[in-house]
Amino acid sequence: MAQRIALHPILGVPEKGRPVKFTFDGKTLEGYEGEPIAVALKANGVMVHRYTKKGHQPRGIFCAIGRCTDCVMVVDGEPNIRTCITPLKEGMKVETQYGVSPLPFEEQGCPSGKKGDGDETV
């Protein structure tokens, strides 16, 4: 589980919003209001934000500034939300994204991920 910094030698005590509850794949977790969703997830030990469409490979935080779009998840029912720059709000429903869906691949009818090779037709 990732550790929050209680006291920083240069920056002092990090400024945080009020504690709020949100759900991740149905589990209730706690984070601070206004911090990026990705940070709240990290503080709760969540590393995998999504599984890719073709290869079903796990992805998480990569650039943390909204550029790389690797950390996207389904938030309040909407897919492809960049969790590293989307502020956490009370009661948010955050779900792992499989392809572009919150449903695991088995439930989407594509159980095994094929690594993205051999796709020669366009």
């Binding site: 990732a2 929050r4 911090e35 990026p36 940070v39 503080a43 935080i61 943390a64 500034i65």
Partner: peptide, 12 residues
């Protein structure tokens, strides 16, 4: 990303 996490958001 590391810099953002530690210095802006206070998380390792």
């Amino acid at each position: 990303a590391a810099q953002t996490m530690i210095n802006l958001h206070g998380i390792l």
